[in-house]
Amino acid sequence: MSVSEDVILKVRDLNAYYGAAHILHGINLELSRGEAAVLIGRNGAGKSTTLKSIMGLVRPAAGEVIFEGDKINGLAPYQIARMGLGYVPEDRRVFATLTVSENLEVGRHERPGMKAEWTPDRLFELFPNLAEMRERTANQMSGGEQQMLAISRTLMGNPSVLLLDEPSEGLAPVIVESMAMALRTLVDTGLSILLCEQNLAFAAAICTRAYVIETGQIRHEGTMNELLDRADLRKAYLAV
């Protein structure tokens, strides 16, 4: 295990339900500062629910979420966001009738005592496509552009950890590739990323560590290279 001492996000024995359905059965995971890790598994495995539970959007029935040493489960999502956890949901959920600039404005938050790192202009450097459509409403954008907007919107809150829920879903291969490069750039600037994915190649381009999730349980954890080398793991939990 290559977990450094500096753990920024820690999830302990997380259990979550939708109504009576038991979705998460005791999830444990850790994210180090500056690290990118992937939570990988087929659809329906519990990836989205894990992220939503961390963000306070789903109330976990049991377990703990610790961020920067503080227990955060039980807090409202906006409080969690303001502490520095940025969440990019599945399906992007951009505000369809708002323009690019307005979508960014909703995400804007300067964390007290910290320099505001992200501005629209810096984001337009990261995603040049967006720069040309500042005044366009989100419902007139392609899926890939919406995904870039969703990530940018979250970065406007200057988070220290980014929770990404399947950003590659439904995107054309060339867009997926540039998305991976942009995310890699973010990691290089020191941002920590917890990525949820089904796309192994995409995850491999960004992350160095992997948690394999199936039916609401972590089945394997290790380095990305280990997962890439072990066909048995991929066959059991990812492939069909």
Binding site: R42, S168, P173, V174, V176, E177, A180, E197, Q198, N199, L200, A201, F202, A204, A205, L228, D229, R234, L238, A239, V240
Partner: peptide, 17 residues
Amino acid sequence: KVQEIYLGTGGMADERV
């Protein structure tokens, strides 16, 4: 093709995937 959908290559295939 099915394996590709489930494992994803997305134009950046690691030769091991």
